[in-house]
């Protein structure tokens, strides 16, 4: 599979809470690898790759397809669109950002930025609240109210680019790159025509950015025996604390936390070492803040592992990743399904 062209399509599709473009995109991509694909009540996409064995254990692979964005709360008399965050968007990246407002059709817009001479003198370096930043779509109030309504979703403008052969950047790499990693895994299994002894359930979940909600109900539906969540985590930048970050290009971050299954983590480490797949440890003292939690405590509980892809500039329009990290995640999961699966 052509990794970059898949990531481009995934990144440029819009999946701000409730919008279905991203779900439609992953649904169609899953068609290459899954016998059955369904959508649950919240909009998550679930695909099954059956091994043919009766009562085979089920390994659930999960990544989320929603993304941070904004939601329309009001339209003022000058025609500016007022919004609330829909997920934890980085406020610092908003002034002058290009966005798309999903009214009766998509409308390009710009987030207002205050000219320097109008900044409040006492708090010059504090940005206004999101509620006070308008969005300029070039419409009068009358026109805006005709085409856009309260509740309309807003995304960053789709803007995927490649910096070089391995580094790509765009909106919503969090967590489309996780989706790409799982598809890469399915592609390996398909190409190798590997016989594996377990069923794989792929869950591309909604509403992670709003509190890991989609994965909870999907996990209940799938009722897996084991689960691996694939998300992104912080990659080091020079201004960050190196103890709280992984490194871009240094491989999957294998999660260690009280909420994660340590046996699965050990198995993943072992497979990585045996197969020369680079990896990094990511140790968290409590909840991981990912779908791993809501999967692990669904129904009567599921052993769950977390693989994170290092990413810079999370929740901005320019999330930057190294595709080799995602490919390594895909290879590692394929090995787990093959080797580890036999031991399950």
């Amino acid at each position: 599979m052509d990794m970059i062209s898949h990531i481009k399509k995934l990144s440029n599709a819009v999946g701000v809470g409730g919008l279905t473009q991203a779900a439609d995109e992953v649904h169609s991509m899953l068609g290459n690898y899954c016998d059955e694909i369904e959508r649950d009540a919240l909009g998550s996409v679930i695909g099954y790759r059956r091994c043919g064995r009766e009562n085979a254990p089920v390994l659930m692979l999960e990544a989320h397809i929603d993304e941070v964005g904004l939601i329309v709360t009001d339209i003022d008399d000058m025609g500016f669109i007022h919004v609330a965050p829909c997920g934890g968007v980085d406020v610092r990246a908003l002034p002058a950002a290009e966005v798309v407002v999903f009214g009766d059709k998509p409308y390009p817009g710009v987030v207002c930025s205050m000219p320097p001479h109008l900044k409040k003198k006492d708090k010059k370096d504090i940005l206004p609240d999101i509620a006070d930043m308008g969005i300029d779509v070039g419409m009068s109030a009358r026109e805006a109210r005709l085409h856009i309504r309260q509740g309309s979703r807003i995304s960053f403008k789709p803007n995927f680019v490649a910096l070089d052969d391995f580094h790509v950047c765009g909106k919503s790499m969090d967590d489309r790159i996780g989706v790409a990693a799982i598809l890469y895994c399915l592609d390996i299994l398909k190409r190798q025509e590997t016989e594996i002894d377990l069923d794989i359930a792929v869950v591309f979940a909604v509403q992670e950015e709003l509190g890991c909600r989609g994965a909870a109900v999907s996990a209940f539906r799938v009722a897996p025996d084991y689960a691996i969540a694939v998300d992104v985590s912080f990659a080091l930048t020079p201004d960050a604390d190196s103890s709280k970050c992984g490194k871009l290009g240094k491989g999957p971050m294998i999660g260690r936390s009280p909420t994660l299954d340590s046996g699965m983590a050990n198995e993943l480490v072992k497979l990585a070492e045996e197969n020369d797949i680079p990896y990094q440890d990511e140790v968290m003292g409590g909840a991981t803040g990912t779908d791993a939690e809501s999967i692990s405590d669904a129904r009567s509980g599921t052993p769950t592992a977390l693989l994170s892809i290092p990413l810079r500039y999370m929740h901005t329009p320019c999330e930057l990743i190294d595709i080799r990290d995602a490919q390594a995640v895909g290879r590692l999961i394929a090995l787990y399904a093959k080797e580890g699966g036999r031991r399950l």
Binding site: T237, A240, K244, G289, M314, H315, T316, C318
Partner: peptide
């Protein structure tokens, strides 16, 4: 103005660059 630089992409010598910093979560 420094308010419009964070989270932006730039063109430099025909290539792309990104201006950002540590994640808002941190």
């Amino acid at each position: 103005d420094s308010s419009v630089i964070f989270g932006r992409r730039v063109r430099i010598n025909g290539r792309y660059g990104v201006i950002g910093g540590r994640a808002t979560h941190q």
